[in-house]
Amino acid sequence: MKHYEVEILDAKTREKLCFLDKVEPHATIAEIKNLFTKTHPQWYPARQSLRLDPKGKSLKDEDVLQKLPVGTTATLYFRDLGAQISWVTVFLTEYAGPLFIYLLFYFRVPFIYGHKYDFTSSRHTVVHLACICHSFHYIKRLLETLFVHRFSHGTMPLRNIFKNCTYYWGFAAWMAYYINHPLYTPPTYGAQQVKLALAIFVICQLGNFSIHMALRDLRPAGSKTRKIPYPTKNPFTWLFLLVSCPNYTYEVGSWIGFAIMTQCLPVALFSLVGFTQMTIWAKGKHRSYLKEFRDYPPLRMPIIPFLL
């Protein structure tokens, strides 16, 4: 059985960083990364991007050496992705923050609204209902991160945790300040508006959870398998008939419901920014589905049925 020789060059300087002799033909890129780490321990596998061309796409960890368009002496180019952190850690951090930050404003801890309001309670029912909904949303997200989601990528750049936390924590503080303010004004149409908004919120939260469970069942634990998601017997998953990412559709719907319930401008802005970002993600995933699966359902749109 022939063996391969693998040289790894710096993608920027073309400097030879490592030479691997007698590499098995069936070795994966993940195994080559581990061998590279032995000579350069500062670059652990998650930091490494190996590619066939200095400006090309990163090879997948599961790619097999003998199936790549290389000879028995293969040249790979290395790029440092920077310090990495696990997706689970990032999600837990960015979701735990809003949960606790919101509660600080809800309980009106000292130095927020003035001494005479310390630890007082709002007289408006919608304020307490909003706290329950907000807390439920982020507790749900935390539990899904721990027990439901299966991540195709193990890590992301460390800098992302600061960007994500600034976004989630900042908006949580902004909306919580106004919703729990002693001078907060309840919704214009009173109980009817709150009940309608609560119904929207609850339905969308159930829908979002149902989609996450359906997506989880598509991917076996520990794998990166991708399949076309289809509706199940659960009615909340029937939205798969019309959109590629109904989890985002339901998520946006939840925040629209919360915005109607609280009639709070920061919540509306958070919903708008979230919708914009999720639309970008949904379009990317939709394109990926179309590219990977020739039999992908043609009627589906990325996030909004028939429109977007």
Rank of each mutant, 00 (worst) to 15 (best):
K2I: 05
K2A: 07
K2R: 09
Y4G: 05
Y4V: 13
Y4S: 04
I8V: 11
L9I: 02
K12P: 15
K12D: 14
T13G: 00
T13P: 07
R14W: 12
K16P: 06
L17E: 12
C18V: 01
C18L: 14
L20Y: 14
P25T: 03
A27Y: 13
I29L: 07
A30D: 02
E31K: 05
I32L: 13
N34K: 07
N34Y: 00
L35C: 02
F36T: 11
F36D: 08
T37I: 10
Y44G: 05
A46H: 00
Q48F: 03
S49T: 05
S49L: 06
L50W: 12
P54R: 07
K55Q: 13
G56E: 00
K57T: 10
S58L: 05
K60F: 02
D61L: 09
E62L: 15
V64I: 07
G71L: 10
G71E: 12
T72I: 08
T73M: 10
A74E: 03
T75A: 11
T75Y: 04
L76V: 04
Y77F: 06
R79G: 04
D80G: 09
L81G: 01
W87K: 00
W87V: 03
V88T: 15
T89E: 15
V90G: 10
L92I: 10
T93R: 02
T93M: 14
E94G: 02
P98Q: 03
L99V: 12
Y102H: 08
Y102P: 04
L103Y: 13
L104V: 12
L104C: 02
F107L: 11
V109M: 12
I112T: 09
Y113I: 12
H115C: 00
H115L: 09
T120G: 07
T120C: 08
C131T: 13
C133E: 06
H137C: 15
Y138W: 10
R141H: 02
R141Y: 15
T145E: 04
L146R: 14
L146K: 06
F147I: 06
R150D: 14
S152I: 15
G154H: 05
Y167E: 15
Y168H: 03
W169V: 11
G170K: 01
A172F: 01
A173E: 01
M175A: 14
Y178F: 06
Y184R: 15
T188M: 14
Y189Q: 11
Q193N: 08
Q193K: 08
L198F: 12
I203M: 08
L206H: 05
G207H: 15
F209P: 15
F209M: 09
H212Y: 02
M213R: 09
R216L: 09
R219G: 06
P220I: 14
K224S: 04
T225A: 12
T225E: 11
T225K: 08
P231F: 01
P231R: 03
F236I: 09
F240L: 10
V243G: 07
N247G: 15
Y250S: 08
E251V: 10
G253W: 07
W255P: 15
Q263Y: 13
C264Y: 05
A268D: 04
L269Q: 09
L269V: 08
V273L: 13
F275Y: 11
T276N: 06
T276K: 13
M278L: 11
I280S: 04
I280V: 12
A282T: 06
K285V: 14
K291A: 00
R294C: 02
Y296H: 05
I303E: 02
I304L: 10
I304V: 10
P305H: 03
P305Q: 06
P305F: 06
L307G: 14
